[in-house]
């Protein structure tokens, strides 16, 4: 598969950002730090999916990013409600 070079370089840059967030997810002192790191990784993965959808030049691939962006906040919502002491 031939991917244009700027798209691939952008994808690698976004993955380096995900790597930095993964460092925070591993060393984060509190669970809130880890939850924020997970939410940032969510956003970066959606951005990577849209970038690669543009690189492959297929519209179908954008639907995955759309569904993912609609679903990804649920986990963060549950973690936040647990940290606040709710969820009964």
């Amino acid at each position: 598969m031939i991917v244009a070079l700027p798209f691939a370089v952008g994808g690698v840059a976004l993955l380096v950002c995900i790597l930095v967030c993964m460092v925070r997810l591993s060393i984060g002192p509190t669970a809130a730090d880890r939850a924020v790191a997970l939410d940032t990784i969510n956003t970066l993965v959606v951005a990577t999916m849209i970038l690669l959808g543009a690189a492959f030049n297929e519209v179908v691939l954008l639907d995955v990013a759309l569904v993912y962006a609609l679903l990804s906040y649920v986990g963060t919502l549950f973690i936040a409600r647990y940290l606040e002491g709710g969820l009964d």
Binding site: I18, V45, T48, L52, Y68, I79
Partner: peptide, 26 residues
Amino acid sequence: DLLASVIALGGSSLLLSLEFYLLQAP
């Protein structure tokens, strides 16, 4: 910490989804 473990599992599952996406299986 099991909550941190769940968060790490969520991140891993997220990136697995990105890998499926890259292998042309949307």
